[in-house]
Simulated scan of single mutants.
Amino acid sequence: MASVTLADLTKEYGDLTAVDGLDLDVDDGELLCLLGPSGCGKSTTLRMLGGLETPTDGDVYIGDDRVTDEPPYERDTSMVFQSWALFPHKSVIENVAFGLKMDGVGEAARRERARDVLDVVEMGEFADADPEDLSGGQKQRVALARSLAIEPDVLLLDEPLSNLDKRLREQMQLELRNIHDEVETTFVHVTHDQNEAFTLADSIAIMNDGDVEQVGEPREVYDDPVSLFVEEFLGDTNLVDARVESEIDGGVVAATEFDESIEVPTAGGDVAAGDPLTISFRPEELDVSRAAADGGQSAAVASEDVTTSLEGTITDVLYRGSSVRFYVEIGETSVFFEQSVGDQSDFEVGEPVVVSWDPADLLVFSAGERVGRGGS
């Protein structure tokens, strides 16, 4: 095992800057996911770590060794790619033992090591099989075993599960997590799938436009996003545009697309009257009930426990398998919430409802940066 340090790492392709002054530390034995949208620079970062790309500027350290200028074969890393790239004319065990053969390990020793890692990935019974006879998930396990066989200090994984179907991908996520725990090797895993990152990672580094936006444990980056980009990228949420009307103790009164002004927390954030805001109403934090027979109350209501409510109308109902998503029109915008099929309240299109929330659950952003959350 070894730690990884990327210091002011930059990669330019002509006028295009793919990675821009990136700094990142990965602890010894950690499983870190580089998470971000396509084109954010995560695969380029991984390739520079593995020596497949040369940085324009900055440094790469594995442990205490600066390896910035070292070729891939001089670094104690191994990479698993999206494509399995197995040798079709070699058996499974010959594929797994290939790297050891290149390292000059004797036949008996390399076959023993290959069998050991095949057992780790639960492919021991397929040691003599033809790779062409394996399923996609089995091929991916063989590719993983081949990389693990050489016992790298750092294992690099470039979206290795992206070619698998949903059920197999989810199964492999759990198995990959267990494999990491068993082999205790430092993993750096690239993905664009936030669910995959949440399942696998000890830590997540969220990348945007060639740099790291935030690093932290999965729950930390979800509960406390530092920017609007992180909040939008990590799961679904309702984003509502607003504008500061006045300041109050612990927050502001903001005019919203709901056609109502509401109180929102800013927790000391530097905002003033007239400043634009974006307010995140996460669907899991919304409480929705049927409107009272007399029509309820359409204006924002703040009680002593600072719960706020607005009346709206159900406009769409989308069945999503195990859950149902409901859209509610409020003023000039709409929000959505979800219920599990077993718990759903059978709201119907056109039905008036009351949407309630606790301001302590709101996330508030100004100019893309978080300026507050109730209770924080």
Rank of each mutant, 00 (worst) to 15 (best):
V244Q: 07
R177T: 06
A273E: 15
I279M: 03
K166V: 13
Q138N: 07
V142K: 01
R115T: 06
I93E: 13
S78H: 05
E74Q: 13
E159L: 08
Q138M: 09
T315A: 13
D8M: 01
F347Q: 02
T185L: 01
Q194N: 08
P225H: 03
L32E: 02
V117G: 08
V60Y: 01
D158M: 04
L31M: 15
T185C: 05
S322E: 14
T307W: 10
A291V: 10
E311P: 00
M1T: 14
R111Y: 14
G235H: 03
G372T: 04
H192D: 13
V67F: 10
S135M: 11
Y319W: 02
A272Q: 11
R219N: 08
S203T: 15
A302H: 09
R115E: 14
A272V: 06
K166G: 00
D316M: 07
F326Q: 09
E351C: 10
E151L: 00
T237W: 00
A205L: 02
E260Q: 14
D165Q: 03
D241M: 00
V183S: 12
A109Y: 00
E94G: 01
E112L: 02
R373K: 15
T54C: 04
G136V: 00
L34S: 02
S298R: 15
P55W: 06
L157V: 05
V120P: 05
G274Q: 12
V121L: 04
T266A: 04
P218G: 11
G106I: 06
L310D: 05
A254F: 01
G39M: 10
E231W: 00
T77V: 14
D130Q: 09
D270P: 08
V355W: 04
L118S: 06
